[in-house]
């Protein structure tokens, strides 16, 4: 009955697609590996999905204002390196360095708005700056995660595994802030219909700076949580996060046109991506085919989306 309503209602179908893909991958994993269906199993499966989810949310903020951040992976790597060196050895200096990173993100937002720079070019350039600093800080992999960070990521939560709690909290906080608050409406509007928002007297500059700074904040959380999991830093620790984060946003129902995003969907999309990797692993798919299989999953979901989109346009 519910299925029937959903099929006849493309809007509903579209909004539950991210949750549906996640349930599908999770179900497949449980069938293949019943031991995964436990506190311990889910904890292991989803642990590394937490930083990916945070990076995806960061990317989502940038996509909301109709931009793209190609420096996300390098930035997350830099934050991890700062955490493993400065933050561990000299906390005040570490905090200062992280604040400088945030300021850089704010400046990036301002530059995109004021100078009309294409964000793709600007962030691509910044990605080399981030990884340059990361290599300067930590030329060979190493360093130590601050103990508090390590303990936080290994937090024993009763009944529900920590990664699930973390993902739920992230999704709720961002959903409330961006989708339910009046300030969130303006921020989304700045991406969806910037002219209208500007005419209504809101500052587009403030909106862009706010969104880029938020991206910086969540990218930083991604880097720190990743560091808490690995225990040591590496300049190239998160190189794949750039593409993961973009794919996660899109998989979660976001679109490149600005304004059309879904925070909860983005978190679900990130979890789906991380789990799809594990699933391919469990299937013992030859490594030569794994990249291709990942791509096929993405295309499959996007094809479904296109199909639903076509249904929406039909009267």
């Amino acid at each position: 009955m519910i299925g029937l309503t959903a099929v006849s209602n493309p809007k509903l179908l579209r909004s539950i697609l991210p949750a549906l893909s996640l349930a599908l991958v999770l179900g497949a994993i449980f069938i293949k590996l019943p031991t995964a269906m436990s506190y311990f199993g889910l904890n292991l499966l989803l642990q590394y999905a937490v930083p990916i989810a945070l990076a995806t949310v960061a990317q989502m903020f940038v996509i909301t204002v109709n931009d793209l951040d190609l420096s996300m992976g390098a930035y997350v790597g830099l934050v991890a390196c700062i955490g493993a060196t400065l933050l561990h050895d000299n906390p005040p200096l570490g905090v200062l360095a992280l604040a400088a990173c945030l300021a850089a993100y704010a400046v990036m937002g301002a530059a995109v708005q004021l100078r009309g720079l294409p964000s793709i070019v600007l962030t691509l350039g910044m990605s080399f700056v981030w990884s340059g600093f990361a290599v300067l800080l930590l030329s060979t992999p190493g360093g130590h995660a601050p103990d508090w960070l390590h303990n936080l990521m290994a937090l024993p939560v009763p009944v529900v595994p920590f990664p699930i709690v973390a993902a739920a909290v992230i999704a709720c906080v961002v959903e409330l802030g961006l989708m339910r608050s009046s300030f969130g409406v303006i921020l989304r509007g700045a991406g969806g219909n910037s002219k209208a928002v500007a005419r209504a007297g809101w500052s587009l500059l403030a909106a862009k700076v706010a969104m880029f700074t938020l991206a910086g904040v969540f990218g930083m959380l991604a880097g720190l949580s990743l560091l808490g999991l690995t225990g040591a830093g590496d300049a190239h620790i998160a190189d794949r996060y750039t593409l993961y984060s973009i794919a996660g946003v899109i998989l979660g129902g976001g679109e490149f046109v600005g304004g059309r995003v879904s925070p909860a969907g983005a978190v679900l999309g990130a979890l789906t991506l991380a789990l799809a990797n594990s699933f391919l692993n469990f299937l013992h798919i030859s490594p030569d085919w794994q990249i291709g299989a990942q791509g096929a999953i993405l295309i499959l979901v996007l094809a479904l989306r296109a199909l639903i989109g076509a249904m929406e346009r039909r009267p």
């Binding site: 690995t230 190239h236 620790i237 190189d239 794949r240 991380a274 594990s278």
Partner: peptide, 12 residues
């Protein structure tokens, strides 16, 4: 040659 991917792989 990716650290986080290999870490997730080990957990799997």
């Amino acid at each position: 040659n990716d650290v986080t991917e290999q870490a997730a792989q080990i957990q799997n």
